[in-house]
Design a protein around this nucleic acid. Structure first.
Lengths: 148, 148
DNA sequence: TGCAACTGTAACCAAGCGGGTTACAGTAAT
DNA sequence: ATTACTGTAACCCGCTTGGTTACAGTTGCA
């Protein structure tokens, strides 16, 4: 099954925050929802996860939402960990109750675990290597081309 | 969300086939289900996917099931591709309809795509690096220790 | 102080997937 | 023919997702 779009929506939201100018007024969940094209509640739920992870600061009422760190200090892995429900190290699910009376059943989990961990770690390292700043710059570059 | 356990069950089944001795009689879906601890139909469904991918040959009736290639020539990536419903390159899902009127909305998909592809490829390379033979040998080694 | 605007959450829904189960038709070896 | 197996359809339940409504809580500001 696919990894939830919560992750990409979260990156989207953070990119909005990273590129938002205070002079443009408040960046509310409704405006973010307009850019993502979803319901404001969906945005608020994701903002709640990002807040819990310490990536953003949300001030209720007309307070606004801000990044807690510089975009260069936020990696996509941070966002991934904040939004994925998957426990760390549990991207793959293994059948839980193989038959212990069978040599294969008894040892399959341990035999697979190493490899699956390595695979998952390889994926996460690629996410760790990209910062929100890079994404924001990439978007800005593309937007400039689109305009010009 | 987690990657379906179909994948690990498929590896389990293939490991059974790789270590099975013909003198031990037919390796039926029911016997495999006994080792995995699930329903025979679940095994048959997975065998169907493995068959379609050309990894096993299943002869109906009392014909038995066999690997189509040597265990050394079957990688876990082959198994992953055979069992995952996820289209190639679609491990991550991206929200489909961002607002084209917003610079971020218009460019987020392209900006994310590169990185997500890289992450997914990194995961798949780790799976490609491990063969069914290695898994079977690992299981045999562990089983020997367990017995001894 | 009271209003307006926003966030935080609970509650509910529909859709889709996963794994389990039953049932039964198809097929091959003996 | 009988027997033993595979192939598949059909159905179920539980879970996750994303969307939606509703409303209480909070804050800035007139």
């Amino acid at each position: 099954m696919q990894i939830s779009s919560r992750f990409s929506v979260a990156v989207h939201v953070l990119a909005l925050l990273a590129t938002h100018r205070p002079t443009d007024g408040l960046l509310t969940s409704e405006r973010m929802a307009g850019s993502v094209n979803t319901n404001p509640v969906v945005i608020r739920r994701i903002l709640g996860q990002l807040k819990k992870a310490g990536l953003v600061e949300v001030r209720p009422a007309s307070g606004g939402t801000f990044l807690s760190r510089q975009p260069a200090a936020i990696s996509l892995l941070d966002v991934y960990r904040a939004t994925e429900v998957v426990e760390a190290g549990q991207l793959f699910s293994i059948h839980e109750q193989p038959n212990p009376a069978c040599p294969v059943g008894r040892n399959i989990q341990a035999a697979l675990n190493k490899t699956l961990q390595r695979a998952q770690t390889a994926l996460e390292q690629q996410l760790a290597a990209v910062s929100l700043q890079q994404v924001a710059l990439d978007i800005a570059a593309k937007a400039a081309v689109g305009v010009g």
